[in-house]
Write a protein that binds this DNA or RNA. Structure first.
Length: 504
RNA sequence: GUCCCCGUCGUCUAGCCCGGCCUAGGACAUCGCCCUUUCACGGCGGUAACACGGGUUCAAAUCCCGUCGGGGACGCCA
């Protein structure tokens, strides 16, 4: 493949806030195409909105992308052939090109004030006309315009939209056509001298030799203006691919009021990056056949295709994300799950920091035991309550235990179990099994009737992980120097039998 | 208001371009059964959709027109 045909894509976020999940999907699709075609993934910072852009958001942005595993080949921190990669550093380029457009009369100075424009706009709307710029300054004599500017009058620069329909091709939507009647002569440089997004994006994409512009479909209506710009500048128009919007459950554009929307939110929840990437890839894209859901990164790179991206908007489904997250928690490299899981337990104050190797081993067993039960890792501390927060009085009073505790067989089972268990410290799995068989024989109960009451005694709930892992964990934990004492089996049994006595 | 885009199970989607293989497939969720001396996991099975109305055709989820519904854009924001 010739060098100039190499696929070059870009992700161009504004550092004005947290990285939104919709933008992450855009970044992902760009990245996937770049990796599949062995092209370049360019990261460009769009900070022309000086009022809202902040350096800390840029730092955060880079960190978020790294966490997601979306690495870039060129960017503000990576040298590439078309620097600089931050728009605030590219002002000279924008001005040169704007001057050229004015000189060639493809753009013109506009002296209309914002107030005038607002009036025109309202008037147009009232008369059910297209609320586009009237073109008042369009026919101004260039020399006259120059004189007024020299006299100190403020002027913005507008692009002249051609007198014919603007057509372009979109990989997701097909051929799109806009009548020039509906597209305003856009301002490309503000009267303050600051160039505008719709202009700089074209200059930059062209300068950086971007071949495929993959972005959200909120830019679809801007595209004719941009195409007109490419043409005015005599530049090749790239391929476009406009991705549908991600919606909340109420079919409104996904926003903060729907809950988690930023990368930071999902990271803090304990969503694994591979789960998030897998989920987002499936939102608007499906493999041919549509019967596969699990796509580890290498598979995604192999299978992805822009031609298969769906044009219709998609509702963000947290449940399916959780399902994928559970999958990756169970299937993923356990070393990493342990490490992350420990982090959540530490932050909840359940584990010391730093950990001794003994505590570390125990914590690893704890995470292994609990992780298969959670949707996201931040549920770990809560689930660890069966280990750390055993409280007999609460267990006895809990409404969800009422049915188990009030069954006729519960009391004899608990007593038979308690009588034997208090003599064992620590209780081994072998002894536990032996005791359970004795209790079974003595009380003539089995299954649920046998195990539910015992479970309530030991962990305060009738559901939880298997005893053969649970009991050693409790016993070992009770002898470890942990910030929160883990009650031993004997402590639990004694406390529980005491508490149940208080009740009829 | 005008323009643009979109419309298959509750949700993500396959199928649509190149009409018949679609009695519309998969997945999440949901329900049931099995497994497990509990719960979860896992396995098996069920409920559930072509927005509506007209065409075209021997035949339409697939092509055409209209209606309705949803989203976006129309800015000296990005």
């Amino acid at each position: 493949m010739a060098e100039k045909e190499k696929v070059r894509v870009r992700f161009a976020p504004s550092p004005t806030g947290q990285l939104h999940i919709g933008n992450v999907r855009t970044a992902l699709f760009n990245w996937l195409l770049a990796r599949q075609k062995r092209g370049a993934f360019v990261l460009r910072i769009e900070d022309t909105d000086v009022g809202r852009s902040e350096a800390r958001y840029e730092t955060q942005l880079l960190e978020d992308l790294k966490w997601l595993g979306l690495d870039w080949d060129e960017g503000p921190d990576v040298d590439g052939p078309y620097p600089p990669y931050r728009q605030s550093d590219r002002m000279a380029i924008y001005h040169e090109n704007a001057q050229r457009l004015v000189r060639e009369q493809k753009a013109y100075y506009c002296f209309c004030t914002p107030e005038e424009l607002e009036r025109e706009r309202e008037q147009a709307l009232k008369e059910s006309r297209q609320p586009i710029y009237s073109g008042k300054c369009r026919r101004l004599d260039p020399d006259e315009a120059e004189r007024r500017r020299a006299a100190g009058e403020a002027a913005a620069i507008r692009l002249r939209i051609p007198e014919h329909p603007i057509r372009f091709h979109d990989i997701v939507r097909g051929d799109v056509e806009f009548s020039n009647e509906v597209v305003s002569d856009p301002i490309i440089v503000r009267s303050s001298g600051m160039p505008v997004y719709n202009y700089v994006v074209v200059i930059d994409d062209a300068a950086m030799k971007i071949t495929h512009v993959i972005r959200g479909d909120d830019h679809l209506s801007n595209t004719p203006k941009q195409v007109a710009l490419y043409e005015a500048l005599g530049l090749a128009v790239p391929e476009f691919a406009h991705l549908s919007t991600i919606l909340g459950p109420d079919r409104e554009r996904l926003s903060k009021r729907h809950g988690a929307t930023s990368v930071a939110n999902f990271r803090e929840m304990g969503i694994l990056p591979e789960a998030l990437m897998n989920y987002l890839a499936l939102l608007g894209w499906a493999p041919s056949g549509g019967n596969r859901e699990i796509f580890p990164r290498p598979e995604l790179i192999k299978e992805f295709s822009l031609e298969r991206v769906t044009p219709s908007p998609a509702i963000f489904d947290t449940e399916k994300l959780y399902w994928l997250n559970r999958h990756y928690i169970k299937q993923g490299p356990q070393e990493r799950i342990h490490q992350q899981g420990r982090g959540f337990l530490e932050r909840a104050g359940l584990l010391p920091n730093p950990l001794t190797s003994e505590v570390n081993d125990w914590a690893e067993r704890l995470v292994s035991l609990l992780a298969p039960y959670v949707d996201k890792l931040d549920q770990l501390p809560d689930h660890a309550g069966i280990i750390f927060r055993f409280d007999a009085a609460t267990a006895v009073a809990a409404p969800e235990n009422a049915e188990v505790l009030s069954s006729s067989s519960a009391k004899p089972v608990m007593q038979a179990f308690a009588r034997r268990a208090v003599n064992e410290s620590p209780l081994t799995v072998e002894r536990f099994n032996a005791i359970m068989n004795e209790v079974k024989a003595e009380t003539a109960t089995k299954g649920k009737d046998l195990f539910h009451p015992v479970r309530v005694v030991l962990i305060g709930s009738h559901s939880g992980p298997a005893f053969d892992k649970l009991i050693p964990l409790i016993e070992d934990g009770s002898r470890l120097p942990l910030p929160v004492h883990v009650k031993s089996v004997r402590e639990r049994v004694e406390e529980f039998m005491e508490a149940i006595k208080q009740r009829p």
